[in-house]
Design a protein around this nucleic acid. Structure first.
Lengths: 340, 340
DNA sequence: ATTTGCTTCGAAAACGTTTGCGTGTTGAAA
DNA sequence: TTTCAACACGCAAACGTTTTCGAAGCAAAT
């Protein structure tokens, strides 16, 4: 077991000073050809690699960014990480992943833990609890200390920083309009409680589409799901008691569950019921029938967020052109088998 | 924007030495009650938090572990990360995530990049390419430098280190036996090419179960899939031309694809064809019919891996009790609708 | 008055780098 | 022989901590 070799050890071994070694390895002209070669050969032999921590301390930057997401097992968030990672790596950055588990406290702890020099900046999507409490002091504080933050997907207007989102309202509007264009009128929505920002926005878009087409919004077929564990009965109830023609679900799980319930009651999709989901994940793709959905490009979203963060990090010196940007990633309607 | 305050600044402000400040904050008895209080109050006021990087440099440990996985968008790997993260956090560790994208080179680069002081240890699952090349020098090197590594799921015998796996062979054996017990004889398997370690192990288990039950192994209904993008035709061919009664797929995607093809040709599952999958992911759960599967508890696996790594890190001083352990996580057969 | 011992604090080294600047040596020009 | 550049290298500070050791100050004991 050969331990990592340091500049000091090389210096001692070669009987020169530490600075000579350092400069030699950097090909400084200050050092004679001779010494340079000798040092470089030795360094190569012992597989010298500079210690990253020491460099971080010296440079006051870690080349590491932290992504905080509510849950990694959600396909969408996994794709975002994937996108962040790709762009980060291209630029020589590492990615630390933290999971808030939808908990405000874990979000705060994670941020405080890492904000003390461990990382250069944050990319995050707010936890449900944080959105509910509307308490963003931990984020404000970090920003105030000069550390850049990029919010994505679940964002808030209460914090000024770069953001990357999709136009949830418009996407939902388009999805609903798509159903209307098929001649469907009685269109239900399965959404989440309002404090989840995207749930509210999507519901708003749905409402607007109906209104613009002179279809009366029926509050009875607007389902807002609170408990993400136990919602089958609500959906079953919605489908069975309202003679709906179409269904817009704000996520995959809701959509596929609706499919399952339809099948159980011999309601044919898409003949008797059209279903459209949100988030183009693995479920939508592999369900039978496969689910038409609003595709939210997580990879692109993560990539964009990483790009914005890194740009801000690298341009820090050039004084804050304190203009925060909001990037909107376009969505796409993927037509599959669950709609006619 | 108030920058982070350091010991030095506090010392200067209070006109004491840096060491006095440090000791005061650590409640050292060396320092008088008076000074301690004064320093602590000041530190609190300015929200002093020690710089992690400086601590890492001093302590020669970063309290960070790196997880290298082939793909994060695979549900199983996402659950592993989740498990690692939970245990790591409990023990005050952070988690850096690296994706190899199934590429040998990316695996090497990631490891070399982080092995230079950035992290304390690795948890990893081998990329396909690495398994194919059988080149593990990068891992051996890291271990040789005294950095602990824990391999999980896709492991190799060529590297001596802690490992956490499931008994792929046994799990496949049991799944096959389960089908046999239902009176099914013509059982096909959809597997991967042999260099993917788990694919081979699962196929072996399948073979053994058949043999032990005096069922002749029919090589025609052993499908080994190479191209993970384009395999539908192969599966379709397998199902249509062999009058099979049951199907064992070594992953979710293969299983759900089989389901889809069956449906397309009006083959009823489970009446005409029983299907059993591997990995209890989101697809198996939400497919129609839902898929019986061998559940591979990723959370537990990740948690266990993290525990082993951290134990090795914290017991480093107590001399290497160089016994590497192999932990086997039990699998479970989850019965759902795709089997009678 | 001197010694002892305790309390309270500061200097400095250490972790591993990078880099500006000072300095000693050499050879050539004056 | 003296002077001066150019060259080659080392010193030391800096990044922000922790910790060992030494020392100053002072009161009590001899």
């Amino acid at each position: 077991m050969k331990r990592k070799v340091t500049l000091k050890e090389i210096a001692k071994e070669l009987d020169v000073s530490i600075s000579t070694v350092s400069k030699s390895l950097k090909n400084s002209l200050e050092i004679s050809e001779d010494t340079r070669q000798k040092v470089q050969a030795f360094a190569k032999l012992y597989n010298y690699k500079p210690n990253n921590i020491a460099l971080s301390l010296k440079n006051r930057k870690t080349k590491t960014i932290c992504v905080i997401i509510p849950e990694i097992i959600h396909h969408f968030f996994a794709t975002v990480i994937s996108g962040v990672e790709a762009v980060a790596n291209e630029n020589g950055y590492n990615v630390i992943v933290c999971l808030s588990d939808e908990s405000f406290d874990k979000e705060v702890i994670n941020m405080e833990m890492l904000a003390n020099g461990s990382i250069d900046g944050f990319i995050m999507s707010l936890s449900k609890e944080t959105q509910q409490k509307k308490d963003f002091h931990h984020i404000a504080e970090v920003i105030n200390q000069g550390m850049p933050v990029v919010l994505f997907d679940r964002v808030t207007n209460d914090i000024l920083c770069d953001k990357v989102i999709i136009d949830d309202n418009l996407a939902a509007y388009n999805a609903t309009q798509f159903l209307i264009d098929k001649g469907l009128k009685k269109i239900a929505i399965i959404s989440t409680v309002d404090y989840v920002s995207v749930g509210k926005l999507r519901t708003d878009g749905y409402r607007k589409a109906l209104t613009n087409n002179d279809i009366k919004v029926d509050e009875n077929i607007i389902l807002k799901i609170e408990d993400t564990e136990n919602f089958e009965a609500s959906i079953e109830n919605l489908i069975l008691n309202n003679e709906i023609e179409a269904l817009f679900a704000v996520n995959e799980i809701f959509a596929v569950t609706a499919l399952k319930i339809a099948k159980k009651h011999n309601i044919k999709v898409p003949e008797d019921l059209s279903v459209i989901g949100f988030t183009d994940g693995i479920i939508s793709k592999y369900a039978t029938p496969s689910i038409s959905t609003v595709s939210q490009n997580g990879i692109k979203m993560g990539g964009k967020a990483a790009k914005m963060l890194i740009e801000r990090l690298e341009n820090e010196e050039e004084a804050a052109e304190e203009q925060y940007k909001i990037e909107v990633i376009e969505t796409e309607l993927v037509e599959r088998e669950s709609t006619k």
